[in-house]
Amino acid sequence: MTYTEISTAFSTIVIKEIKRFTRIWIQTLLPPAITTILYFVIFGNLIGKAVGDMEGYNYSEFIAPGLIMMAIINNSYANVVSSFFGAKFHGNIQEMIISPLPSTVVLLGFISGGVARGLLVGIIVTLVSMFFTNLHIHNIWIVISVVILTSFLLALAGFINAFFAKTFDGMNIVPIFILGPLTYLGGVFYSISMLPEFWQKVSQLNPILYMVNGFRYGFLGVADTPITITFLILISMNIILYLVAYFLLKKGKGILD
């Protein structure tokens, strides 16, 4: 395929993916907005007053970046896992396999769909947050790069999950039992400096902590983890998961035969 043909094929997959999640916006775009409103009402306004300031900011300001990042994480992951598993389940992944599309284009097409949903949900949640709190921007480039790297990483993780999932249960196990707990324990609602030393060390094994704190640093200029470590972890995990996803797709594991 020529470069023009490849870019046409790539944009076909991305547009298809975007149309898919916007077609079912009640399931994909609306829930994060409502959940965020509830978090701000309950944690920000009611409980937040009792908690007081955190790292020099009021509680609503402190949790806002974490809530936005939580929505991005969940939606980037959910988009690819459901779309790719659906394509396996309905058999329409064969449409791509029989075509001359290189595996890289298929992979990047699905991942870009996940990134697109993550970004759109991120924007929606950010707009909702602005009704409840003042959003400071410490460094916009850090905000953008952490968002892109995180949504790309979670989209890759969703792709790998979809590869191995054989049933709808298999598709939901990771988000419910792994991703959810890691996100809640990743410093969205608290600073890990509040934890005993042992649990601070345990928390540092959680990759979500670095995503949330990197993003919070971009907004507030404060974080529990150094921003360089955040980038190092995000970039290296992206490379590792990309290679795993590419290998699985190239081998056709769970798709061929």
Binding site: A9, K16, G91, N92, Q94, E95, S99, L101
Partner: peptide
Amino acid sequence: NFNIFEPVREIIVNQGGYYG
């Protein structure tokens, strides 16, 4: 083996897109 939720013409057009 098509996505049953997609519109008919979209399924055909997308397939062409995969061929560039």
